[in-house]
C-alpha cells in the first residue's frame, strides 16, 4: 500500500506527516494528531459527527482520505475558540441554551452552525434547520440547538446586548 507525504494546516498550525493511502482524514486527525474533538459516528457519511471546516467549507472527514488533505487548511472543534481555553460566541451560546446532552454530535453540530453563520449571519429557523439537517443528534430533538444558533447570530450581529 502506498504512503503519501502531506502538509496540512490545522487550527493555524502546520502539520507534516506520511500517511497510508487508505487512512481517512478523521482517523488521521484523531489517531495520528490526537485531535479527538472530532468524532466518528457512522463512517458512511450520514451522521455528521466528523464534520470539520475544510478550505472554509463544512465536510465529513470520514468520507475523505488524509492524503487528499495535502495542502489544505482545516479547522476542527478545537480551533473554534478565539483563544485556548476560551469559547467562541457560538460555543458559548450552545452552553447558554443547553444545546447538547451527551456531547457526542456537538463538535459536528458546532461546525455545521459555524459554517452557516459565516455564510448567513442572520439565518431564519428554516435556514438553521437546513444547515444542521446533515448532523444527527439523538439527545436534543434539535430545539435547543436551533435556539443556540439564533442566539449566537443575535450576539454576533450586536442585536443581543447581553452577548
Amino acid at each position: 500500500m502506498s504512503s503519501h507525504a502531506i502538509t496540512v494546516t490545522i487550527n493555524g498550525r502546520v502539520y507534516r506527516a506520511t500517511v497510508p493511502a487508505r487512512m481517512t482524514l478523521v482517523d488521521f486527525l484523531r489517531d495520528e494528531l490526537r485531535l479527538t474533538g472530532t468524532h466518528v459516528g457512522c463512517e458512511h457519511g450520514v451522521c455528521g459527527a466528523c464534520s470539520i471546516m475544510f478550505e472554509g467549507r463544512p465536510i465529513r472527514s470520514c468520507l475523505m482520505f488524509a492524503a487528499q488533505a495535502d495542502g489544505a487548511s482545516i479547522t476542527t472543534v478545537e480551533g473554534l475558540a478565539p483563544e485556548p481555553g476560551g469559547l467562541s460566541v457560538l460555543q458559548d451560546s450552545f452552553w447558554e441554551t443547553h444545546a447538547l446532552q451527551c456531547g457526542y454530535c456537538t463538535p459536528g453540530m458546532l461546525i455545521a452552525a459555524h459554517a452557516l453563520l459565516m455564510r448567513i449571519p442572520n439565518p431564519t429557523d428554516e435556514e438553521i434547520r437546513e444547515a444542521i439537517s446533515g448532523n444527527l443528534c439523538r439527545c436534543t430533538g434539535y430545539k435547543q440547538i436551533v435556539d443556540a444558533v439564533k442566539l449566537a447570530a443575535e450576539r454576533l450581529s450586536g442585536k443581543n446586548q447581553n452577548g
Partner: peptide, 12 residues
C-alpha cells in the same frame, strides 16, 4: 448553565 457542557463544547 449545566456544569458539564463546557468540556463538550471545547472538544475536550
Amino acid at each position: 448553565r449545566p456544569k458539564e457542557d463546557r468540556r463538550f463544547l471545547a472538544g475536550a
